[in-house]
Design a protein around this nucleic acid. Sequence first.
DNA 1: GGGCCCGCAGGG
DNA 2: CCCTGCGGGCCC
Length: 305
Amino acid sequence: MARIFGHIPGQPVGSTYARRRDLHDARVHRPTIAGISGTGKEGADSIVASGGYVDDEDYGDVIVYTGHGGRDPNTGRQIRDQELSDPGNAGLVRSHHEGLPVRVVRGQNAESPHAPINGYRYDGLYRVESYGAKVGIDGYRIWQFTLVKIHDAPQESPAESAPPGSVETGPQTEPGPASVIEVLVQRIVRNGKVIQQVKAWYDHTCQICGQQLEVAGGLYSEGAHIQALGSPHQGPDVVENVLCLCPNDHVRFDNGAIYLMDDLKVVNALTGQVTGALKVHPAHRIDVRHVAQHRQRWTTGTPRA
DNA sequence: GGGCCCGCAGGG
DNA sequence: CCCTGCGGGCCC
């Protein structure tokens, strides 16, 4: 069975499964015990986060996921260094380099507010934002992978176009749906100068909530365009149109859960209440025309094409 | 086939 | 709760 990257047809985000075997049967995550599905040559197509590794961190839209290896099978504690060459770890590295999306499944974990109460839940696609090694809680080197949720509109893998019974003979060239590859390429994060400049001004501090998100290897923030890029919004990729936000506030902002007034007060769209003021660095000029466009996009009732 | 892995059930 | 045995599936 070929490895599938991206969503599995018929398995929408939020689907729940009682046991690991059910995840396997649904092809959402094939291994029945292992947390990472993948190899160094192909990349990793899915992971399960069940809280089994003490160094894991789950922030919802950002997951710091510990690689495998080096554990005492009985106690679950690290008893030796992890190796990046182990298949699953190498797979996540490959996914990072290729920009491949990783299906994330969360398992029951009473200590995490993001985990299901029981069983397993498919929580959608993440990209491997970065990875690195550190000495874990148990005193051995671990490899950790920072996974960041992909918030684009769900991209269904195209249905198998080959009719049943149509068997390709000859060498397996693994045709692979081209559209999936295109989507992946589109999702490679642009880390251009504009976003880097904005992040530098704020040192990764969220302009809305003021928090700095610490991940392995440093701080993490996102450059958020106020007036969205591309059709139909046509916002420019300039510092006057970019905010430095934490992932959660980025999601809220991009989906209209929060918007800004012209004086840069922050408004909760559900309540209409001002919840604070945008924090702005003296050198950062924000163009209120983009602020107004974003606000009108989410507060006017005119349907959009 | 050998070894590995973020299960699972059962018993104390 | 912790520990045990018994595992399936996958990668090498």
